[in-house]
């Protein structure tokens, strides 16, 4: 294994520890299942899809068939479409007929060519953040009525709560900062243990015991205590500043 694995890997490991994240695989499974359930409960839709989006980048996509995937891919290639609009506006967006709706001219034209006539998309909201969007597609214009829209809204609300734990790059950054901090703290404990072992002739376990005892009796945090011990030596207050060759060994 790499001695210094990229923070992404450590972040993912830590994310799992903190119960914060779904792995990419689980996320993919979840969105696939969700797309299927949406389609099965919406007879007017020939297909359904779920996208997880972060900073206008699609993280994972669940689609019931190739046409849904194509209609979805087109949105990200063209940078426009109902699903992206639902995500960015954090509100529902519907296209009743791709041959007459001109809000997303490039996408509508391409989708109509592929056979998609209607689309309704609802954002996945987690607090104030949009984490993606769900959508239903039809090959017939004006296929979706109020019950279809309301059902998708309800599904999206439930899905948001469940998918909210999918790892975004933001949590990775936050976690690796936390992890670096934790490794640094652990490192300081190691240094402090080493100093006590050398200075007081203790074993590693005895040094750790001495440290925990000192933290308990003084009420000073372990982090500060160990940092102070490490700093003492750097100042040369505890050790001679000019160790002779024999001491180096």
């Amino acid at each position: 294994m790499d001695l210094f694995p990229p923070s992404g890997e450590l972040g993912t490991a830590l994310g799992r520890i903190r119960g914060l994240t779904l792995t990419q695989e689980t996320a993919q499974n979840a969105v696939d299942l969700l797309a299927r359930v949406t389609q099965e409960t919406t007879p007017n839709a020939f297909g359904a899809g779920v996208s997880l989006i972060h900073q206008a980048q699609r993280l994972s996509v669940g689609a019931t068939d190739d046409l849904v995937r194509l209609a979805d891919d087109l949105q990200y290639e063209l940078g426009e479409g109902p699903c992206l609009a639902a995500w960015s506006s954090r509100g529902p967006v519907g296209v009743d007929d791709t041959t007459t709706d001109h809000r997303f001219p490039q996408w509508s034209a391409a989708a109509a060519d592929a056979g998609v006539r209607a689309c309704f998309s609802f954002p996945l909201l987690r607090g104030r953040d949009a984490i993606g969007a769900m959508k239903i597609y039809s090959t017939a214009p004006s296929a979706f009525g109020e019950p279809d829209r309301a059902r998708l809204a309800r599904l999206a609300t439930a899905a948001s709560a469940l998918l909210g734990h999918v790892q975004t790059s933001e949590t990775t950054t936050r976690l690796s900062t936390e992890l670096r901090e934790s490794l640094r703290a652990r490192d300081l404990v190691g240094i402090a243990k080493g100093i006590l072992m050398q200075r007081e002739g203790l074993t590693e376990a005895e040094a750790l015991m001495a440290l925990t005892l000192r933290a308990r009796t003084t009420g000073v945090s372990f982090r500060r205590l160990t940092a102070e011990i490490a700093a003492e030596t750097a100042d040369g207050t505890a050790f001679g500043t000019d160790p002779g060759p024999s001491e180096m060994l």
Binding site: I17, L20, E178, S182, A185, V189, G190, K193, L208, F222
Partner: peptide, 18 residues
């Protein structure tokens, strides 16, 4: 959470896995 506790324990040189 268990994760938070373990991470702090780890930072204090804890040796046992989560």
């Amino acid at each position: 959470s268990m994760g938070e506790v373990w991470l702090h324990y780890f930072s204090l040189s804890g040796e046992v896995d989560e």
